[in-house]
Simulated assay, not measured.
Amino acid sequence: MGEYKTEEQKKKFYRTGDWNRLRQQALERDNNECQQCKREGKVHVDSIKVQGERKSVELNVHHKYGIEHYPKLALVLDNLETLCLQCHNKMHDRVFGATKEKKWDDERW
C-alpha cells in the first residue's frame, strides 16, 4: 500500500493486478450494472464485446472514498461500486458537453 497523491501514482495503482482482480469482483457483485442508475430506477449495463471490434467502455468501478485521501481503502471491496461513465463523471463533478442556460429568453436589442 502506498500513497496515491499524484496522477502518476494513481495510474500505477490502476495498472496493478490486485486492482484489476478487485475491480472484476466489484463488477460481478454489482451484476455489471450501474448502481446509481439502479437507485434511480433505471438500468445501465455493460456493453457486449463484438468480435473484431473494440469494446465500448460503459462502466467504471468507483472508490466511494477516494484513494488519494483514503489509501487504506484502495483495495477494499466495500469501498467500491460500479457506475456508468455518466454517473461516475457526475460523482467527480466532470460534466462534458453541458450547455449553458440562457438568462433571458427574449431577444437582445
Rank of each mutant, 00 (worst) to 15 (best):
Ile67Cys: 01
Thr82Asn: 02
Glu53Cys: 00
Asp78Ser: 15
Leu83Glu: 00
Lys72Pro: 00
Arg21Gln: 13
Glu8Ala: 15
Val95Ala: 04
Gly17Pro: 00
Arg108Ala: 03
Arg15Ile: 06
Arg39Gly: 01
Val95Lys: 12
Cys34Trp: 03
Thr16Ala: 12
Lys5Gln: 14
Lys64Leu: 14
Phe96Val: 12
Cys87Ala: 05
Glu8Arg: 14
Lys90Asp: 09
Glu3Gln: 14
Trp19Ser: 07
Asp18Asn: 14
Asp78Glu: 15
Asp30Phe: 07
Gln35Asn: 11
Lys49Ser: 12
Asn79Ile: 05
Tyr4Trp: 10
Ala26Glu: 00
Tyr70Asn: 14
Glu33Ser: 10
Asn60Cys: 10
Arg94Tyr: 03
Asp105Ser: 11
Val95Leu: 13
Arg54Cys: 04
Gln25Leu: 15
Asp105Met: 07
Glu33Trp: 01
Gln51Met: 05
Gly2Lys: 14
Cys34Lys: 00
Trp104Val: 07
Asn32Thr: 01
Asp30Thr: 11
Phe13Leu: 15
Trp19Val: 06
Ser47Met: 09
Thr99Asp: 05
Glu81Lys: 03
Lys55Gln: 12
Glu68Arg: 09
Val57Met: 08
Leu27Trp: 01
Ala98Lys: 14
Tyr4Thr: 05
Cys37Ser: 11
Ile67Phe: 02
Trp104Ser: 10
Tyr14Cys: 11
Pro71Ser: 06
Thr99Glu: 12
